[in-house]
């Protein structure tokens, strides 16, 4: 079995003295895990930073085998990793979530494009609000690809398509302001930038609302009962974003 093409490094674990096991998100083969010979060495290690875009070749003798990976670095995520605390946290969370949540060897082309897009925005835009909002959108796409998408198209109670202001924490469907106001304290606020079309830069409070919204469903549906530290890493990111709103 062979595969080759572009990929994004999502996780790297040291294996033995000199090797590493990587998990790569690919456009047409989904999440692939493989052993990188010399992955713990000085030369290959910089190519294995989560978020790096690489050209990879993966091969295994049989389908059940882990597989071997050889790779070349195309674009380093080093500057994002060594940037601000928000940049490091967004990079760490988006790649860790991808590595944790996706089953292996299922193609998710839309998710690959979304993660590549998030990394591009992070590299190209100085304003952290742009890529924190992109992270919220990425999480929504990930949930949708895994079958837990939110329905933000119309109000679950009235069918109205405008003035959607809440999301039901149970049904994960949008609720209009008029229908949801009496139960506002039990609802999750739907941030305006998710309801609005266009590419306006979202304000920090809306981004924080967006992360709380996706966080509720990621914890309930995607990472339920798993990886407490992952969720703690997300809490830290949210705390730092909340600090920006003050």
């Amino acid at each position: 079995m062979h595969w080759s093409g572009p990929a994004i490094v999502c996780a790297t674990l040291p294996h033995g003295e000199a090797g590493a096991i990587v998990r790569l998100l690919t456009p047409d083969a989904g999440l692939l895990a493989g052993y990188v010979r010399g992955g713990g060495g000085r030369r290959t290690r910089p190519a294995l930073i989560p978020g790096n875009r690489i050209s990879a070749r993966w091969h295994a003798r049989v389908e059940s085998q882990l597989g071997h990976v050889t790779l070349e670095l195309d674009q380093s995520a080093g500057p994002l990793m060594l940037g601000s605390r928000l940049s490091t946290a967004v990079l760490a969370w988006s790649t860790a979530l991808t590595a944790h949540a996706l089953p292996e060897r299922h193609p998710y082309p839309a998710l690959y494009d979304a993660l590549a897009g998030l990394l591009t925005v992070m590299g190209a835009t100085e304003d952290p609000r742009a890529w924190c909002a992109a992270l919220v959108r990425y999480e929504l796409i990930l949930m949708s690809e895994l079958g837990f998408g939110l329905d933000l198209s119309c109000c679950v109670a009235t069918g109205a398509t405008d003035d959607l202001a809440f999301v039901s924490p149970k049904s994960s469907q949008a609720v209009s302001r008029a229908a949801g106001l009496p139960w506002a304290d039990r609802m999750l606020p739907l941030p305006g930038f998710l309801a609005r079309a266009g590419t306006h830069i979202a304000p920090w409070p809306e981004i924080a609302d967006g992360l709380r919204l996706t966080g509720h469903f990621i914890e309930r549906d995607i990472l339920h009962g798993r990886v407490a530290e992952s969720l703690e890493a997300r809490q830290r990111l949210l705390r730092w974003i909340e600090a920006e709103t003050r």
Partner: peptide
């Protein structure tokens, strides 16, 4: 270390 985990830890410590 100049790794993602190392930098995450550094930001957490600074905080």
């Amino acid at each position: 270390n100049a790794t993602l985990e190392g930098q995450t830890t550094a930001h957490y410590l600074a905080d």
